[in-house]
């Protein structure tokens, strides 16, 4: 099944106001479907992060349509967008953004806690997911006790524990050495292969090109090249 999990159609996004206003996205369209891993590449300032924010329902487009699992985000308020993110989208960040005062398992459980999942099943599920990313032996470790690669695996576990359909990753290997970067991309590719999720990765890292089903290059707020 190749259902589109996120569709962006003719997205325009203006940033700033008055004389300082710039058009960060200039009518870009993109579709992320289940079972695929897309790499979004391009130079700094090309609009990758803005597009990721729009696809992740953190920014609303100036014009154009975003659909998450077929549901348009047009007219949705901040609370509705937060619910869409909570229910359907998992995020992975370059700097991991784990909570330093929480253990690995609690960092993962947080994604379930904000959904209102009861503590005990949330704990069991979080341990299971940590196990799938190879961290069953470090569930009680705090972020400062983990390597960069391990922290990123905790972040992956947090992104997938709630069953998100779309995983949006911003430079997930940017802070890692090639070995850890390779391990992380392998994990993301595995996630994409289970055909219930689509994974979109923003990256500058050419080493991860082999993991992509599709590569989209951006330049100056537009998609300039799509390669399968």
């Amino acid at each position: 099944m190749t259902c589109p999990v996120i569709e962006a159609i003719d997205i325009v996004k203006d940033l700033g106001k008055g004389a300082g206003q710039v058009q960060a996205l200039k009518g870009i369209s993109l579709s992320l479907t289940c079972g695929e891993l897309i790499l979004l590449m391009g130079p700094s300032g090309s609009g990758k992060t803005t597009l990721l924010s729009v696809l992740g329902c953190m920014l609303t487009p100036t014009s154009g349509t975003v659909r998450v699992l077929g549901q348009s985000t047009a007219g949705a308020g901040p609370g509705d967008l937060a619910k869409l993110r909570r229910d359907h989208i998992g995020f992975i960040f370059q700097s991991y953004h784990l909570f330093p005062t929480l253990s690995a398992v609690d960092n993962v459980r947080l994604a379930l806690d904000i959904r209102g999942t009861a503590a005990e099943p949330a704990l069991v599920r979080s341990k299971e997911v940590l196990s799938t990313v190879g961290l069953s032996h470090k569930i009680n470790a705090f972020p400062h006790e983990l390597s960069g690669g391990e922290q990123q695996r905790v972040a992956i576990a947090r992104a997938i524990v709630g069953g998100a359909s779309a995983i949006l990753a911003d430079e997930p290997t940017g802070a890692l050495d090639s070995e850890n970067g390779h391990a992380i991309m392998t994990k993301l590719a595995e996630i994409a292969k289970d055909h219930s999720r689509g994974v979109l990765v923003v990256t500058h890292d050419p080493r991860i090109l082999p993991f992509a089903n599709r590569i989209i290059r951006m330049e100056d707020g537009r998609s300039c090249l799509q390669a399968a």
Binding site: A82, F93, I114, R158
Partner: peptide, 16 residues
């Protein structure tokens, strides 16, 4: 602040 921003990014409600 960055932790609260992360919470918002991953979909936490304002009430939480």
């Amino acid at each position: 602040l960055i932790e609260f921003a992360t919470l918002r990014a991953i979909g936490s409600s304002s009430v939480y």
